[in-house]
């Protein structure tokens, strides 16, 4: 327990960084993912092709490689990004690829008649999207988007390889200073598990609420 006491402040800081990475990347990933989904479904071929290529690249390569590319690769071109922004960027870009597929599935699942009814009362593309399509699409995409959020929380541990002091890095540091790796990684695993348990409980109650609404 001595160890736990000594590690606690560091763990707290690590947790804050982990949550920051996860939440920020999820937020950016949702916005970018939605834009990608709309591009993918647009009638303009160049936009569609771009979206397809993007998703293919970011889902088809390891996240770790993406992080390393941004942090260690880009400086070769004179682009130097700090560790935390690098991690946020990599996580967001990656999440956007996956989330765009979730959103697309949701949008496609909305009945065709919904858009027609919206257009028939004179709504524009954006009005129909905002008022009619997205509220239904998001509901349908909710379970897969929630799962992606949880996966993203775990992916934040990859940021440790580019010196971001998040939970995993804290465990590594304290472990190497005290040679108590086993305990430290166990503690950190429990923290991740607790965070994700809270997230899945939140997801469940949100889904229940949404199922009830109509």
């Amino acid at each position: 327990m001595d160890l736990l006491n000594r590690a606690l402040p560091l763990l707290g800081e690590g947790l804050v960084v982990t949550l920051f990475l996860g939440l920020t990347a999820f937020g950016i990933g949702c916005v970018a993912g939605l834009a990608l989904a709309l591009m993918r479904l647009s009638s303009a071929r160049p936009l569609r092709t771009l979206a397809i290529a993007y998703v293919s690249v970011f889902r088809g390569t390891p996240m770790l490689v993406q992080i390393l590319l941004i942090y260690f690769g880009l400086p070769q071109f004179g682009i130097i990004i700090e560790p935390i922004p690098s991690a946020v960027l990599a996580l967001s870009l990656n999440a956007a690829g996956y989330l765009s597929e979730n959103f697309r599935a949701g949008i496609v699942a909305v009945e065709k008649g919904q858009r027609e009814a919206a257009n028939a009362i004179g709504m524009s593309y954006w009005q129909a999207l905002r008022r009619v399509i997205l509220p239904q699409a998001v509901r349908m995409a909710m379970p897969s988007v929630g799962n992606r959020f949880i996966a993203l929380m775990k992916d934040t541990s990859l940021a440790s390889v580019i010196t971001v002091v998040e939970l995993t890095r804290v465990a590594e540091r304290v472990g190497s200073a005290t040679f108590r790796y086993m305990e430290m990684f166990m503690i950190v695993a429990v923290v991740y598990w607790m965070v994700n348990t809270v997230l899945s409980l939140g997801q469940e109650s949100l889904e229940r609420r949404m199922a009830r609404a109509y």
Binding site: E111, G113, Q114, E116, A117, A118, A120, I121, G122, M123, Q127, R131, V132, P135, Q136, R139, A213, Y214
Partner: peptide
Amino acid sequence: AGMVFQQFNLFPHMTALGNVIEGPMTV
């Protein structure tokens, strides 16, 4: 030109009143 569809196409996430006032408000 309003349209009434065979399959109604009501907006399922809005109440009856919500469906009716959606066009007047948004459009």
